[in-house]
Design a protein around this nucleic acid. Structure first.
Length: 598
RNA sequence: GAUCUGGUAGCUCAGUGGGUAUAGCAAUACACUUUUAAUGUAUGGGGCCUGGGUUCGAAUCCCAGCCGGAUCACCA
């Protein structure tokens, strides 16, 4: 059922059409300025001294640009976000992509002749908050120093049929801080209707602009180094490159199972085999696993692979790149995240995994066998079971003792070989691989290797994964014969990395949840409760005039009505008839009511 | 998956000895020619998430479910 306000807006839409005003005109609207342009252009007119600063808007008062060649005739477009109507003159707020600006409408300037319809009817009666309009006029400031547009003409560009949440913001005179009233904060509504969130919450729009800057910063860095941006398959016959459960789909023509990629690693390495020195891809990956504050089923990584390099080189590169990202996105290397200030300035701390464990637990686990490791884990409250081998136990201890405490960006290096089937064995440390993770704010943001390029060793590692799969590990990697074939032709020594864009965006924008850096985070579908239409009720025998009354009594579906007690319904209808002022509609007979119920 | 917590008007929310529901913004009407959370007066607007139960009577108490959020577990 439509709300009162929605019905009214639909009526206004019709009324406009009757007046010959198209609420959804086809032709373009050529605006000359945005709010950003104007604020920048008048920045030097901003009142700077506190002496004359009791101005609301912060600009010199009484600027009048009506004769100015540029600002005497300005066209702007945007969404109406508020009205202050005062008889024959009014103020309104328009919001465009950059922000808000005040509009001034004066009846006799808008309508110089006798016909005051455009002001009295179209502007005052038929426009609503949320409508999109184009305006033309000159720039001026009011007595209070608010930069404004003196509107001489306006044109409706889009009628909005749903009422928008109205968020009001006021600057506290004592503290000078902004206070927000009636903020639109319900996370469910914000995520399901992100468009509303973006209209009403400027800081949300800002977060996503920063995310875009972050991606651009990385793209620019990698492109400037001469690496090639590529695209590789999202639909893959074999999912590889990470340990995760995939989403499964089916191709009808080929009649085959395909997987949404969990990583693109193996394809990028094929391109290194093909002879490119460096390739990268911003990749949406899909993992069929749990969702929480840091996991969404689809997420973005940038993976890149560079020939003739190793993981030490990659650490230098990641440091340099992320430091640049921090500066490009936030203007500084020091980023506030929750209660912490994280400094991305190079160089970052580097610890081997064993060093990290020793630093946070005081225990040297580097020479330990499985039993001792199990004791260490148990002593720290980690639940263990017999299926957990050495490397799993080390990983658990690290995850419990170290990772959450690594707030400043830190490289953790040299992981146990069992957990890294695509990584080259360490050049000098047996049992370890040349791998690092970059940890920041207690969470992994990047994972990198000296890539394994010995095809015989790679095959053996895949075999181990198959063994794990046979024992029931549904995240074990699958054998990829084509990838092995590529390695057999020869892949140069290569360094590769995957960097989580969402996690990095959370840090750079100080957001506690991944949902805040994804426009449309995954949600359970909203379920509309079943409601019968007017036509359904009429079809069931209820006269049109009585449908509303029946709905008022709580019968939202025909089925509910048919389960009703006809005598009680008959009585209740009498009451509703009075309430709805239906005196001109005759009361139905009890027999008729019985027929509705059926 | 477990525990905790929430779901009342377009939005933000009040509402337990159980008695058809509060307020602000938004809306409608009138007034008001530089206001800025504009103001003043009046008015309208509700399947109290859904379904059961207890009761003469449920937004409120009980049970089950649906959809969020937080924490933990699992998972990278």
């Amino acid at each position: 059922m439509l709300s009162e306000q929605e019905l009214l807006r639909r009526t206004k839409r019709e009324e406009l059409m009757r007046m010959g005003i198209d609420p959804y005109p086809a032709e373009l609207f050529d605006f000359t300025h945005t709010t950003q342009h104007l604020r920048d252009a008048f920045a030097h007119k901003a009142a700077r001294s506190p002496a004359g600063a009791n101005t609301q808007g912060g600009y010199e008062s009484h600027l009048d640009l009506s004769a100015d060649p540029t600002y005497g005739q300005v066209r702007m477009a945007g969404r109406l976000m508020g009205f202050r109507i005062m008889g024959n003159a009014s103020f309104a707020e328009v919001q465009d992509s950059a922000g808000r600006m005040q509009l001034y409408f004066r009846r006799d300037d808008l309508c110089p002749g006798d016909d005051k319809t455009m002001y009295n009817t179209v502007f005052k009666k038929l426009l609503d908050i949320g409508d999109i309009i184009g305006v033309e006029g000159h720039v001026f400031t009011t007595m209070t120093g608010e930069l404004s547009l003196y509107v001489k003409q306006f044109k409706l560009l889009t009628k909005s049929l749903r009422p928008l949440p109205v968020v009001k913001e006021v600057v506290n005179e004592q503290t000078g801080e902004k206070e927000i009233y009636d903020a639109f904060t319900d996370p469910e509504l914000r995520y399901r209707q992100r468009y509303v969130d973006l209209i009403v919450n400027p800081h949300v729009r800002e977060t996503f602009i920063k995310r875009s800057k972050l991606v651009n910063s990385i793209r620019q860095y990698l492109t400037d180094k001469g690496y090639l941006e590529v695209e590789t398959p999202i639909l893959q016959p074999i999912h590889g490159g990470a340990a995760a459960r995939p989403f499964v789909t089916h191709h009808n023509t080929l009649d085959m199972t395909l997987y949404l990629r969990i990583a693109n690693e193996l394809y990028l390495k094929r391109l290194i085999v093909g002879g490119y020195d460096g390739v990268f891809e911003f990749a949406k990956d899909f993992r069929n696993e749990g969702m929480d504050r840091t996991h969404n089923p689809e997420f973005t990584q940038v993976e890149f692979y560079v020939a003739y390099k190793d993981y030490n080189w990659m650490m230098d590169t990641i440091e340099e790149m992320v430091e640049k990202v921090a500066i490009d996105v936030t203007g500084t290397t020091k980023v506030t995240v929750g209660p912490n200030v994280i400094d991305f300035k190079r160089p970052w701390k580097r610890l081997t995994m064993f060093q990290a464990i020793q630093e946070f637990t005081g225990v040297d686990v580097s020479e330990m066998e499985e039993d001792s490791l199990r004791d260490v884990a148990e002593s720290r409250g980690i639940k263990t079971d017999s299926s957990m081998g050495k490397s799993k136990l080390i990983d658990e201890i690290f995850g419990e003792a170290c990772e959450p405490n690594l707030i400043q960006p830190t490289f953790i290096t040299d992981y146990p070989v069992e957990m890294s089937p695509l990584t080259k064995k360490h050049r000098s440390k047996p049992g370890l691989v040349e791998r690092f993770e970059a940890i920041c704010n207690g969470k992994e943001i990047a994972n990198a290797y000296s890539e394994l390029n010995d095809p015989i060793d790679q095959r053996a590692r895949f075999e181990e994964q198959l063994e794990l799969a046979r024992r029931g590990d549904d995240e074990a990697m699958a054998m990829d014969e084509d990838f092995l074939r590529a390695l057999e032709y020869g892949m140069p020594p290569t360094a590769g990395v995957g960097l989580g864009i969402d996690r990095l965006a959370m840090i750079m924008t100080n957001q506690p949840s991944i949902q805040e850096v994804l426009f449309f985070p995954q949600m359970r579908p909203e379920k509309k409760s079943e409601v019968s239409t007017e036509a359904d009720f009429v079809a069931a025998g209820v006269p049109v005039q009585w449908v509303l009354a029946v709905q008022q009594l709580g019968f939202m579906t025909v089925a509910q009505l048919q389960a009703a007690n006809p005598n009680k319904l008959f009585n209740d209808l009498g009451g509703v008839r009075k309430k709805l002022k239906m005196s001109e509609v005759p009361m139905p007979k009890i027999e008729e009511v019985r027929e509705w119920v059926g």
